[in-house]
Amino acid sequence: MSFTEKTVDGADIMLAVSSLTKSFGEVSVLKGISFSLNKGEVLAIIGSSGSGKTTLLRCLNYLEIPDGGKISVSGTEYFSIDSGVPKEAEIRERRLHMGLVFQSFNLFPQYTVKANLLLAAKLIEQEKLKKRLNNREIDKAQYKEEKARTAEMLIQKADSLLSRVGLSDKADSYPCQLSGGQQQRAAIARALMLEPDILCFDEPTSALDPELTGEVLNVIRSLKGKDSTMIVVTHEMEFARNVADRVIYMADGVIAEEGSAAEVFENPQSEALRAFLGAAKRK
């Protein structure tokens, strides 16, 4: 039974990836990846080092341009090799459907936590307002008023997100003053500021000391809900098993196995997956 078939006619497919390929020079890293994801689902991607998990997430976020295949988000084209590579501005717009939390956090060091959350959101809102001003939908006075109003609104949003990830007291700290776990939670809040349709995590706890992984995983778990679709690349098997609705096991650039968490973890079909899970358990 394949996951893709089951959801093909569903109205609420959030993400559909088909036959995605990507090579770096001679090295073929993604060899035809197809899967889909329903709204509100959490997908865990597991697999050994070098299997292409990061490359897949980077393709989903337009940090790499795939060589072939198709990606659609909520039924609209997100990437298609037939349409070629979109223009920079178009990529920016499409990217807003996706969020990405990096293994190494990548907070902006010169800004406070709160400013990290606000920077991009503010720029986007300002751009929208400028457009309306240029189209004469609003006049100068309204523009100023709106600008102040959205700034206020964004600050409230940032505050509420920071409290959601438990960082209210760190809003004015700089990233270098935070622990790794706190930095990652700030990075998650920053990604949530833009309300992506799908939030991707690339090994969000791999750069953390073991005692800090829990707080980050708990935050991710707390995000689970009917409106938040997430893809989590992880080596934390317990987490994948408890939180994910779906699990994909990648090996050597292909999806070697996929299914519900129970299916994949309780009843692995291939010898490779059994070996992988066994090795993960021993760690």
Binding site: N61, Y62, L63, E88, R92, E93, R95, L96, M98, G99, L100, F102, S104, N106, L107, F108, P109, Q110, L119, A120, L123, I124, R190, A191, L194
Partner: peptide, 26 residues
């Protein structure tokens, strides 16, 4: 680090915005 560019990009910032707000101060 390249991650700074990428973090800005996935947040929907233009290259110019990433350069002036994120990269250049560093």
């Amino acid at each position: 680090p390249r991650g700074q560019w990428e973090a800005g990009a996935v947040l929907g910032m233009t290259k110019a915005q990433v350069f002036s707000r994120v990269i250049f101060p560093q």
